[in-house]
Computed example of a mutant assay.
Amino acid sequence: MLTHPDLQRLPGALEASRTSVELESRALRGLWERNEGALRVAVEAIAGISGRLVVCGLGKSGHIGKKVAASMASMGIPSFFLHATEALHGDFGMCTGQDAGLLISSSGTTKEVVEVAGMMRLIGMPVVTMSSNDTSPLAQLGCANLNISVERESDPLNLAPTSSAVTTLVLGDALAVALQGLLDFTEEDFGMRHPGGALGRRVLAERGFDHA
């Protein structure tokens, strides 16, 4: 609960929320154009594997990474999220040389994420990175860096991962959609992955599949 909110400041707070929406919208301008080449390399690297896409991050980047991994899986790209700290304490055993990595860190310097990227490289996994700095330690370990940099974050302090979280999510979706475009992925395939939801049930029912 907020401590002693001053409702007299509500007009200013609402103006800050309007500015936040505008800044996050602005962060998307030119995002695809500046990442077109990196996206091509990333798609080719991930499409060439026989295993799964392992998405890894910490903090807010980790939360976005979980959504990216879930979207990939629902679109026919076998994928799972790996917590960077847990990976350094045994969970890295989930990875194989047949997998690829998608490592996320806005600064590109998050120690645990950089270490996991290095471990992935050691076992022969192609690594794609997402960071705001193409020369960061993390980006240097990837075959492609999807640049998630923003002019500024959208909160008044320019500190909270807001605008950068949006660019990370949008580029993750763009990567997933591009990979899905390489697959012979049908509505039936989508329905099979979402049988518990209204959309999945409708797709399956339209094609004569029963789901109890």
Rank of each mutant, 00 (worst) to 15 (best):
Q8I: 05
R9T: 14
A16L: 11
R18Y: 08
S20L: 08
V21M: 13
L28R: 03
W32T: 04
W32F: 14
E33I: 05
R34D: 01
E36L: 06
E36C: 04
L39E: 04
R40L: 10
V41R: 02
V41H: 01
V41F: 00
A42V: 13
V43G: 01
I46E: 05
G48D: 12
G51C: 05
R52W: 03
G59M: 07
S61G: 05
G62V: 08
G65C: 09
K67A: 09
V68H: 00
M72Y: 15
A73L: 03
S74H: 12
M75S: 15
G76R: 14
P78T: 08
L82H: 06
A87I: 02
L88I: 14
F92M: 12
M94G: 04
T96K: 00
D99M: 13
L103W: 11
S107H: 04
T110P: 12
E112S: 09
V113Q: 00
V113E: 00
A117Q: 12
R121L: 12
I123K: 05
T129M: 02
T129S: 01
T129A: 00
S131I: 05
N133W: 11
N133A: 12
D134C: 06
P137G: 09
L141S: 09
C143L: 07
N145M: 10
L146I: 09
N147A: 08
R152C: 11
P156K: 04
L157P: 03
L157K: 05
L159E: 00
S163Q: 06
S163W: 03
S164F: 05
T168G: 03
L169T: 11
L169Y: 12
L171H: 02
D173T: 11
D173H: 14
D173K: 13
A174L: 15
A176K: 01
V177H: 09
L182T: 10
D184P: 10
D189V: 11
F190D: 10
G196C: 14
A198C: 09
R202F: 13
V203T: 11
A205M: 07
D210A: 15
A212L: 12
